[in-house]
């Protein structure tokens, strides 16, 4: 098994006394070293839960996971807490959406970088400090020494997210998980962070799984795109294929609904209705109730992803003719 990430039939359920939420319902994918996969989806699609499952970061007491989930050869589902703790932050690291709340407000940036290095590499405080300086340089934070002594609220949004990335990279992870890392940022800062992540990914040869709701962001950074709906990948393929020749009606709808240049004056295509309740999923294709080309057959069974791994494939029995994106 040479893949960096190997996922088969992954399900994640959140169980509480009064209900069970089926957040992820059978996800399969592989990720190679140095590859960038974007998981594209709207709120409640299960994209963030999938990402967190890769580090077992979902709330431990309520989460039930099944399937196969291997990261760097380590079985994540059956690993002991101790094993998971030594993977987190070392071989797999994560960048979050909102750097203001994702950083501890009463610890300096320097302390928050150093503690990760010390935790995993057992180096001295002085060496950890040296590494922290290098890391700020790597993520292009100027006047590093001063910024290490700063608290999160003393930095601008862009610098905070760079510091968050520095923390994630502090032990040179093989896999970087990014949960909408540019969504909370201003436009001119968003593109800086996006380009920074792309450069770092190439220089360090990391595998990256990048969760976003923004097709444009995915287009800038992804090698492959997986479109997620109601806890399943409904379409997966190379970035060009998915953006230009979308197969699944949901992806086509999403492309039509995303406002971009040259749409002025035209009516936007919309997807009618709203996503299904994850506590009570319909049988068959979860998108069928909102799908313009759905029929009785769609409700009989969950359609499989057609085609081989790595190919451009979609979870739809009708595969309507290509729509122009």
């Amino acid at each position: 098994m040479s893949n960096l990430v190997h996922v088969r039939d992954l399900t994640v359920k959140f169980v509480s006394r009064d209900r069970t939420v089926h957040a992820v319902n059978g996800v399969d994918f592989d990720l190679d070293q140095g590859e960038v996969l974007c998981i594209l989806g709207e709120s409640g699609s299960g994209k963030s839960v999938t990402l967190r499952a890769l580090m077992r970061l979902n709330p431990p007491t309520r989460t039930v996971m099944t399937g196969t989930l291997n990261v760097g050869g380590q079985d994540i589902i059956t690993a002991s807490d101790r094993e998971i703790e030594s993977i987190r932050g070392r071989s797999v690291a994560m960048v979050f959406q909102e750097p203001m709340t994702a950083l501890d407000p009463v610890f300096t940036i320097g302390q928050q970088i150093r503690e990760t290095v010390i935790r995993h590499e057992g180096v001295s405080k002085a060496d950890a400090h040296k590494r922290a300086l290098e890391l700020l340089d790597l993520v292009q934070i100027p006047s590093a020494e001063r910024r290490l002594a700063a608290y999160p609220h003393e930095l601008s949004g862009g610098l905070r997210q760079r510091a968050m990335i520095a923390i994630a990279l502090s032990c040179r992870p093989k896999l970087l998980l990014a949960d909408e890392p540019t969504t909370a940022l201003d436009a001119t800062v968003q593109i800086q962070i996006l380009l920074l992540l792309r450069r770092l990914q190439r220089e360090l040869g990391m595998g990256v799984i990048f969760v976003t709701h923004d097709l444009g962001v995915a287009g800038e950074i992804a090698d492959r795109i997986a479109v997620m709906y109601a806890g399943r990948f409904v379409e997966e393929g190379a970035v060009r294929e998915v953006m230009r020749h979308a197969k699944h009606p949901y992806t086509q709808g999403l492309l039509g609904a995303t406002v971009h240049e040259g749409m002025r004056g035209k009516r936007l295509t919309t997807i009618i209705g709203s996503p299904p309740n994850l506590a009570n999923l319909p049988t068959g294709c979860a998108f069928a109730p909102r799908c313009p080309s759905a029929d009785a057959a769609c409700l009989e069974a969950v359609p499989g992803l057609d085609g081989a791994f790595g190919a451009h494939r979609a979870r739809c029995i009708h595969q309507p003719a290509e729509a122009m994106a």
Binding site: A187, T188, Q190, I191, Q192, L194, L195, D214, L215, G216, V217, G219, E220, A222, V239, R240, M243, H260, E261
Partner: peptide, 15 residues
């Protein structure tokens, strides 16, 4: 600063 929406002509430098 807007994403290009075109994987073949990605942004290369931040403006």
């Amino acid at each position: 600063s807007r994403p290009s929406m075109d994987p073949d002509h990605r942004r290369t430098t931040p403006p």
